[in-house]
Design a protein around this nucleic acid. Structure first.
Lengths: 239, 239
DNA sequence: TCCTCAATTAATAAAATCTTCATAAATAAA
DNA sequence: TTTATTTATGAAGATTTTATTAATTGAGGA
C-alpha cells in the first residue's frame, strides 16, 4: 500500500497516551527535524508532504493537532484551513514565514489555534503544541522540570530519580515546584502560605511546617536529605 | 511610531521611585480599570493587549512586575511565563479566571510568584503587588552587590568569595546590607538600631554591638577581618 | 457504609538566633 | 598616667522560630 504519510514512533503500546501530530510541510529537511523533535517528545508524528488528498488523510488519521506550513506550493494553506474547519475542529498551528504579520493575522482569522513564525525555537514550538493540546484535550505532556538528577513532573505529581519514583501529594507538589521555580532566592513562609491557601480564612501556621517536613522526608528517601534549607526568620531556599 | 504598549503616568521625575508594572490583558475594560487603579497608586503602568512580541517588549521595558492574564486568546499565558522564566526573573502575578483551579496550580508550577482569581478585590490585588515588589525591592536589578571580591546576595542571604559561601543570619544581613548601601559615609549606631529594631525602646544598646561582633567574626572567616571600621563616638564605616 | 489517605490541628520537642550580662579592651579626655 | 566613656567579646539564658510526632477531621473511592 502506498501511504502518503509516514508514521513515526509506532510503538503500539504507547499509542493510547500519545497525541498524534500531523505535520504538513514540503521541506524535507524541516520535516525530518520536526519528526525527530516531536518523536523524541513522545508524539506520534505523521508527515504529509503535499496537499494532495490532505483533507482526506487528515480525516483518516484524525490527528490531535496539525502543524501546517502556510507556504506549501500549489495551494494555499489558508484554503486548506478553511476547508478543514468546515469538517472538523482539529486544532491547527500555522507555521508562517518570517515577518509576515499579515499571515499571522489571517491564519488566526481563518481558524488557526496558534501560529508560529519560521525560524522558530524548537522549545517554543513544543510549548505551543503543549498549550494547544492542553486547551483541547485538557491534558498534555507538561515539560519536566529538572533539579539535579531529579525529574519533576508536576502534572503527574511525581519525582523521578533514575527508576526510583516518588509520589507527592498536592501540597508537597505546590511547595516543591514553587521552590524549584525560585531557586535563586529565599522564599518566605508567607509566600508559600498564600500560594498554598490563597487568602483563605485562617490556616494554622504549622500546616506549612508539617507539609515541608513531609516533603523533606520524602526527598530524603531518594537520597536528597538537605535540599530544602531553612533560613530562620526569613524562609526557605533550595540548595 | 507605533507603540504596542502604552505608558501611563510618565512624569519622569518620579520614575526612579516608581515601580513599572506591565499588564498583559486583552479585555479593554479591565485594562483601563487596572491602569487607573495602578496609576492612582503611583505605579508606572504599561499595557500589552496581546502576545505578539510580548517577550521582546517585556525585555525592552524591563518592568518590575508583570500582571499576566492567563486567558489571552491564541496563546497560553503559561507558555509565555515559561519562556519568560528562561530569560529573566521578573516577578509575575497570574490572573486566572474564577473556576480554573487547574490554572492556579499550573501557574505556580510554571513559576508565577503569585496568582489571583478574577473577579478580584482591587485592594487585595494592590496588597499582593506590594508584597511581591517588597520581596524583590532594591535587589532586583542587581541581585548581587559586590564589595571588593565579595559578592553579597541579599536574596539568598549569603556572601560569596570565589567558591566560599558565608551564610548570614537575618540581623547580620540587615547590618551588612545597610553598611554596604552607605559605603561612602559613617553610619551611626542609632541608625542601625532603628533599622534593626525600628523604635522599640526595650532593646539593649549592646545587642547591636554583639551582632556586629558576630558579623565581623564571620567576615574574618573568609579573610576580611577589618572591613567594618569603628569610628569611636560616631559609628561604623565600611573600609 | 466503611476505609483510606491526605490535610489540618494540636501538643511537644528541638533548634537557631537574639539579647542580656558580666567583663575586658580600646580610645579619648583629664 | 589615670580615669571615663565607648565599644568588644564570650558565655549564659531567653525568646522565637521551626520540627516532629501523633491525633483528628474530612473527602473520595471501594
Amino acid at each position: 500500500m502506498d501511504l502518503n504519510y509516514i508514521c513515526y514512533n509506532n510503538k503500539k503500546e504507547m499509542w493510547e497516551n500519545m497525541s498524534k501530530i500531523m505535520v504538513i510541510e514540503d521541506d524535507k529537511l524541516i520535516c525530518n527535524e520536526l519528526a525527530k523533535l516531536l518523536e523524541h517528545h513522545n508524539y506520534e508524528v505523521y508527515l504529509l508532504k503535499d496537499f494532495k488528498e490532505a483533507l482526506k488523510e487528515i480525516l483518516e488519521v484524525s490527528p490531535d493537532l496539525i502543524l501546517l506550513d502556510i507556504n506549501i506550493p500549489y495551494i494555499n494553506g489558508e484554503v486548506l484551513l478553511q476547508n478543514l474547519r468546515k469538517e472538523t475542529n482539529i486544532p491547527v498551528i500555522m507555521v508562517t514565514s518570517i515577518n509576515s504579520e499579515i499571515d499571522e493575522a489571517l491564519s488566526i482569522s481563518y481558524g488557526a489555534d496558534d501560529y508560529i513564525t519560521k525560524p522558530y525555537n524548537p522549545n517554543i514550538l513544543l510549548l505551543r503544541i503543549g498549550a494547544v493540546l492542553k486547551r483541547v484535550k485538557g491534558s498534555f505532556n507538561s515539560p519536566e522540570l529538572t533539579y539535579r538528577e531529579l525529574k519533576f513532573n508536576y502534572q503527574k505529581g511525581i519525582i523521578k530519580k533514575d527508576n526510583l519514583e516518588l509520589e507527592l501529594t498536592k501540597n508537597e507538589m505546590i511547595i516543591f515546584s514553587y521552590l524549584l521555580n525560585h531557586q535563586n532566592r529565599i522564599v518566605t513562609r508567607e509566600e508559600l502560605m498564600t500560594t498554598l491557601w490563597d487568602n483563605s480564612e485562617y490556616v494554622n501556621e504549622n500546616a506549612l511546617t508539617v507539609n515541608i517536613s513531609r516533603l523533606r522526608s520524602k526527598l530524603k528517601e531518594i537520597g536528597y536529605p538537605d535540599v530544602i534549607n531553612t533560613k530562620k526568620g526569613m524562609g526557605y531556599i533550595l540548595l
